[in-house]
Amino acid sequence: MEAIAGKKDIISQLKKQILSMEGFSTGSVSRQLDFGLGPVNDAFPEGVFPVGTIHEFVSPTEAHAAAANGFLSGLLSTLLGQSGICLWISVGRKLFPPALKFFGIEPHRVIFVDVKLRKDGLWVMEQALKCTALSAVVAELREVSFAESRRLQLAVENSRVTGFLHRQLPSSKHTLACVSRWQVSPLPSHSSGLPGVGFPRVLVELEKIRNGRPGSWTFEWRNSRFHALPDQRPAALPATSPSNTRSYA
């Protein structure tokens, strides 16, 4: 029995080492963070949201981009904690910084870097990901090649900084070196059965997760945290307008 237990322990340690080599952080720091994603955790290796790696978000429309930025802000509120700092890089930023307070993030803890060229945004992100003084780096870019994403992943292997690559209105979905790919869609909010009145809701689709299980979930942001809801995906997502949909940011 002791021999069997010893083999199981060795196998467990090897699995953790392999996950670490593939860009996953499953150490104590990762396990201490509760992002409030509930059922989504079952999709991750070891049941833990991967930190110290690069996540890709794909937004085919501006409405999706606004919803994704809101979902990202909810993740950042946990990742930054009480004293963390985030660098937010954009080519044509549309995020309204004071809106971050809705997610418990003081705007002065997010450093915004606005650039005109995509290559400048990539360079800034790569350098920022090497800075251990940062808790997270977000970059809103449209097109990123596999080679470029690989350089970003290599940058975090030593620093263990968490990166979010938000591709807005990309020309295509192609393979990147990121450990996950997400798409966040806005959904109508509800209050007392009335659509468009209430807390913001989104459909979160995890399209790809290395060594995990993709899936989709519906969330509502309420009382400074995520709340998982029954799947309310419509047959066809309604056209987004201020009258019937409330986005996060």
Rank of each mutant, 00 (worst) to 15 (best):
L72T: 05
F226A: 03
L165E: 08
S30I: 07
K119C: 06
G52L: 02
S189H: 01
F44E: 00
L141N: 08
E140S: 04
F226N: 02
G92M: 03
W123C: 07
N158L: 13
R150N: 12
I11S: 03
D42Q: 14
F103S: 01
P107Q: 08
D231V: 14
R142G: 10
K7M: 14
I18Q: 14
Q13F: 10
S185Q: 13
S135N: 15
S180D: 02
A139Q: 05
K101V: 14
I85C: 07
P214T: 10
E62G: 11
G6N: 15
L187V: 11
C86L: 06
P230C: 05
A228E: 09
L33T: 05
L134T: 03
P170A: 09
K101T: 12
M1P: 13
Q153K: 10
P60F: 14
A155W: 01
G81L: 12
L169A: 13
F57H: 06
K15I: 14
R167L: 14
S180N: 07
P234I: 11
H55G: 05
Q168D: 00
G212I: 11
V110P: 03
R222W: 11
F164H: 09
I209S: 02
V204W: 02
N244I: 11
A239Y: 11
S243I: 10
E106P: 00
F199I: 08
I85N: 02
R213E: 10
A249F: 09
F164P: 03
W221G: 04
R233K: 11
F103Y: 12
V91L: 12
L187T: 10
L152N: 03
G84E: 07
V197W: 04
G121T: 06
Y248I: 15
E207W: 11
S20N: 12
R31A: 12
Q32R: 13
F226Q: 07
K116A: 15
V91W: 05
V91N: 12
S73M: 02
L141D: 11
C131W: 09
L76K: 01
P242W: 09
L87S: 00
E143W: 03
S180A: 10
G121Q: 07
E205I: 04
F57R: 03
S77A: 10
V144P: 05
P107C: 07
V113A: 11
V115P: 06
H108R: 14
A68I: 04
R213W: 08
K119P: 01
C86M: 09
L80Q: 07
A228M: 05
G193R: 06
R118H: 09
L141E: 12
W217F: 06
K15D: 13
E22W: 00
P188M: 13
V137D: 01
